[in-house]
């Protein structure tokens, strides 16, 4: 076989993409870790910190998308190169959403702490948050390492988060009915519950894209679970 060609310009673009993906992944994970940690106790700095991280994530996502489109236009990548770029486009969208949900959780947690009631929900939300953050870490590390084996259990973790979601939703509704939780607090808890459930879906997305990146095979998607409020239709998308 002849000596390999480097394709220096394309390799440079892909190296830059990799660096940017490492950065955006780190920022997104930091944002959600900080936001979930904010469930523990009032910390006025959390909202500002997570908001700043979210803005950084969004700005970087815009740059990554622009660079990916340019790379496709200029280099017409195929095979693994093409998968690297299409997966980066997909994963960067998930990471952007993770940053956004982190900001939403930080804001809701801030409101919860200000209201002062409904604390019985917080440990469960924190537990669910830990599981979700763990899923995101696993998926992101698998993506950065190009290791599809480490996401093999991500669907069962997602099922566990879904179960948390359903149980917590019922508990919050019950608390509101018993008037141990104010409507305002109940609403914030339901929102956090919902954000965490959606975050685990984004972790699953990333895990599935890792499988595609490595194997070229798109994983069979399970039918989308009813992820809305129990008894309501699932939201589109």
């Amino acid at each position: 076989m002849p000596a390999p060609v480097e394709r220096k310009a394309l390799s440079e673009e892909l190296n830059q993409l990799r660096e940017n993906m490492e950065t955006i992944a780190t920022l997104s994970v930091q944002a959600i870790e900080r936001a979930v940690a904010g469930l523990d106790s009032p910390d006025t700095g959390v909202v500002g910190d997570v908001g700043a991280l979210d803005r950084e994530v969004y700005g970087l996502k815009e740059r990554i998308v622009r660079n990916c489109v340019e790379t496709i236009a200029l280099h017409a990548p195929v095979a693994k190169d093409l998968r690297t770029i299409t997966v980066a486009l997909e994963v960067t969208t998930d990471l952007d959403r993770i940053g956004r949900y982190a900001k939403d959780i930080a804001e809701s947690a801030h409101e919860l702490h200000r209201e002062g009631d409904g604390r019985e929900s917080l440990p469960k939300l924190r537990e669910m948050g830990n599981l979700t953050v763990g899923m995101i870490r696993t998926a992101v590390n698998a993506y950065l390492a190009g290791d599809a084996t480490s996401v093999s259990h991500i669907h069962s973790d997602d099922d566990a988060v879904d179960q948390f979601h359903d149980d917590l939703f019922q508990a919050i509704i019950d608390g509101m009915a018993r008037r141990t939780i104010t409507p305002r607090t109940g609403a914030e808890c339901i929102l956090i519950n919902r954000y965490l459930e959606r975050l685990s879906d984004h972790a699953v997305n990333i895990g599935e894209w890792v499988v595609y990146l490595v194997s070229g095979e798109r994983p069979m998607r399970l039918p989308r679970r009813q992820t809305g409020m129990p008894g309501t239709p699932a939201p589109p998308g």
Partner: peptide, 10 residues
């Protein structure tokens, strides 16, 4: 094939 179509081929 991958080496050829990605251009990393002599």
């Amino acid at each position: 094939t991958e080496s050829y179509i990605t251009g990393r081929f002599g």
